[in-house]
Design a protein around this nucleic acid. Structure first.
Lengths: 250, 250
DNA sequence: TTTCGTTTTTGACGGACCGTCGGAAAACGA
DNA sequence: TCGTTTTCCGACGGTCCGTCAAAAACGAAA
């Protein structure tokens, strides 16, 4: 019993170590530079051992996502505690999403890849289930805030529009904005300004459209966001991905 | 001269053939099932010949995107001609985006992959330039419609909000919604309804929030969209991707 | 029609990577 | 100390990408 848990603890620690290496590698060398052989080489372990933790490369990626998602739930939890009207708390969620995206730049990449390479088919079902679970928790927090808005009388949805639809809208807006920002199009040359600034404004306008009080014309969004960052997320720093890519990308 | 163009014509045709094969393969077997060897096997050409058309696999993907984007511009052009108020024409763009996404399901996948695998670094710069060009044309059409809205007095943007920001918002909303729909999460179990239906409604609410008349409460969106589909896009059919995947995915 | 230089096509090959598997090594228990 | 069980290892088969020297097709001149 005792020896079993010790063993298990060792395994846990090793898994965390492996994920850490993998995360760094994904960030520094890109997806193509993330290889099982390299992970084996950089740790003291062999490939066979690594394959006892992860069924395959795709499974490893999902594991990375689960880890990141856990962190996101934590940020969402914090955001939900913001003292203010529900719309302000939802704005805090927006700040959390933004910070999460900037402080965990590998997540978006992993998410993209998981979606693209039909990775879901190959990953371990148990791991996929935990991913779904943690995803549901993030969403649940958002649903709760929207419902609080209705309860407080700030939010009166049109018939047929449910809180889930509203949340899906905000989610889409953010998801899409980051996706667009990440595919490195020459946004300026196409006529756009700072995509993050635009996203914030657009999120406000969308909530306006949903009739969620107070309307964005009635408060200072920038000041609110600054307060949220200061009060809740002072410790979260946005680490941008390494600018030129230190290692040979391929 | 004549012989040159004949040769060139042959090359063009062959390129189109190769792209067709590649597109089908991407759709049927997924990204991992799309291999240069297989393309060579399915056509009468050898791998070396294929590599005279495309610098590498990533370049092939970008070529696929350029082709698809051209089609999208065509749909956008049609949408822009819809006889109605600017907001209705922008809704027609939305219908076009929807149809494009459904009738060209490989595009989203290619786009995702291009973004993810740092493919931009490896693709031919000339091809990337033409991709950017065709992208700019799509956006230009949208900018034009929004400006028409301002000119018609239907749209009064808040200070600091530009038409580009509005378009980026709509783009994000759609991009994100499709991205979310495509990663095959169990949306129902998470509490969501039909994502497309929700997207349509949310797009309307976003335009409401921007103050674009007529507000969605003042007209019948479903009827409008039906009219748009009937008048402009009767010939466009949404071919969904093969349900179970006919070939061995790996 | 034949010859000969040029262009195009080919597919075998090197290299990289994934995932496996039989056996070595370590841990364990008596 | 020795057998048993668990864990670990890394060489290997297979797949795929991208290259390149040789072969084939082409076309102009003889």
């Amino acid at each position: 019993m005792s020896t079993l848990t010790r063993k298990q603890r060792e395994i846990r620690e090793r898994e965390a170590l492996l994920l850490g290496i993998a995360r760094r590698m994904l960030l520094e060398r890109g997806y193509l530079g993330l290889t099982m052989d390299r992970i084996a080489a950089e740790t003291e372990y062999s490939k066979g051992t690594i394959y006892q933790h992860f069924a395959n490369k795709e499974d490893l990626l999902v594991a990375l996502m689960v880890q990141s998602c856990g962190r996101r739930v934590e940020l969402f939890d914090r955001a939900a505690t913001f003292r203010g009207r529900p719309r302000e708390r939802m704005t805090a969620i927006g700040v959390a999403v933004e910070l999460f995206h900037l402080s965990t730049p590998d997540f978006a990449q992993a998410e993209t890849l998981v979606k693209a390479s039909s990775i879901r088919d190959k990953a371990d079902p148990v791991r996929l289930a935990s991913l779904e679970d943690v995803e549901a928790r993030s969403l649940g927090i958002c649903f709760g805030i929207a419902r609080d808005g209705i309860a407080a009388g700030d939010l009166a949805l049109r018939p047929g529009h449910r809180v889930e639809d509203l949340v899906l809208g905000l989610w889409s807006l953010h998801q899409g904005a980051f996706a667009i920002a990440d595919m490195d199009l020459p946004l300026e040359r196409l006529g756009f300004g700072d995509p993050l600034e635009t996203l914030r404004r657009n999120a406000g306008l969308f909530m306006d459209g949903c009739g969620w009080l107070p309307l964005s014309s009635d408060y200072d969004d920038a000041a609110l966001r600054a307060r949220i960052r200061g009060e809740l997320f002072a410790d979260v720093t946005a680490t941008r991905p390494a600018p030129p890519g230190p290692g040979p990308a391929r």
